[in-house]
Simulated scan of single mutants.
Amino acid sequence: MARTALVVIDMLNTYEHEDAEVLVRSVREALPGIRTLLGRARAAGAPVVYVNDNFGRWRSHHGEILDAALAGRHADLVEPIAPDEDSLFVVKARHSAFFETPLSYLLDRLDISRVVLCGQVTEQCVLYSALDAHIRHLRVTVADDAVAHIDPGLAEAALRMMERNMAADISPSDRVAFEEDAET
């Protein structure tokens, strides 16, 4: 049986960076889709894994990262999708959720064969994470209404690349299934 995990990328964000205001607009649009995915994954009992930058704070852990994001200028974008007590958490330092993190090991231990990606930024961290999932022989789904971007043209190109080059399923959040199924 296939087992699916939801991977939430970089949504615990302080929005204190150069492209923040452009990104915030897109995050507001993606938030309903992310909430839909979280609800569907949790209802199905699928693992939810938050993978997040540490913002260069090398002594931080997931609680501190969440606290920093909730204390930031846009806590309203973080609070509705904050991890619950069952969520798993992986800290990353680079663009890919897999690069030098324990994510691959964690997914293997959970017997995951498919990942659903959501979060930010479509044309950067989501794209690189999809590629790394693909080369690890994981099936990839990206919920196109649950990813945020800085550059809309690059985001659209990234989604097309994921679909064509990585055989990713690009679907809206309300069509993404999390139930165990050999074909999903």
Score class of each variant (00 low, 15 high):
D111F: 07
D174N: 13
V90A: 05
F55E: 14
A5H: 00
F98G: 03
A68G: 08
R175V: 00
L70K: 13
L154D: 04
M162H: 05
A75G: 12
I150Y: 04
E16C: 05
D67I: 00
E29P: 00
M11L: 12
E180S: 13
F178S: 02
L127F: 11
I81K: 05
R164G: 01
R94L: 13
L131M: 11
Y105T: 10
E18I: 08
E29A: 14
A155V: 04
R73G: 14
L127I: 05
F98K: 03
N52S: 13
T122H: 06
T184K: 11
R139I: 00
G56C: 14
A157I: 05
P172T: 13
L12V: 08
V78H: 06
I112S: 01
R42T: 07
T141Q: 00
D151K: 01
A133T: 02
S60K: 07
L159P: 01
D53F: 15
A143S: 12
A43I: 03
G72Y: 10
A148L: 09
A133D: 01
H149Y: 15
R35D: 02
M1P: 06
V91L: 15
T122L: 05
E29Q: 14
V91K: 14
M1L: 10
F89K: 02
D84W: 07
I9S: 06
M1W: 01
R59H: 11
D10W: 04
H61N: 15
S60W: 13
D151N: 13
G56M: 13
G63R: 15
V49S: 04
I170N: 09
A133M: 03
D151E: 03
S113T: 15
R73K: 13
S26Q: 11
L88C: 03
A182H: 14
A155N: 02
D144R: 13
R42W: 07
G33E: 10
H62S: 14
E163W: 05
P47R: 10
E123I: 08
V116S: 04
P102G: 00
C118T: 14
L77C: 11
S113K: 09
N165W: 10
V27G: 03
V49R: 03
G72Q: 09
S87F: 07
S26G: 09
H95P: 02
L117G: 03
R109G: 00
E29K: 15
L138M: 02
R28N: 06
Q124W: 03
I135H: 02
A44E: 13
F99K: 07
L110T: 03
L106T: 06
G72H: 08
G63W: 11
D169C: 04
N13G: 03
N13T: 08
L159E: 02
A43T: 09
L110G: 01
I81T: 08
A68K: 11
A5F: 04
A97E: 01
I9C: 10
G119N: 10
D19E: 12
T4L: 01
A155G: 08
G72E: 08
L154T: 02
Y15D: 06
D19T: 10
V142I: 15
F99D: 06
R136G: 00
P152T: 04
D86G: 02
R139D: 09
A157D: 09
A93V: 04
A46S: 15
D19L: 10
L127P: 01
E18T: 12
L131H: 13
A69C: 10
E156V: 05
A168Q: 07
F55M: 15
H137R: 11
E180T: 12
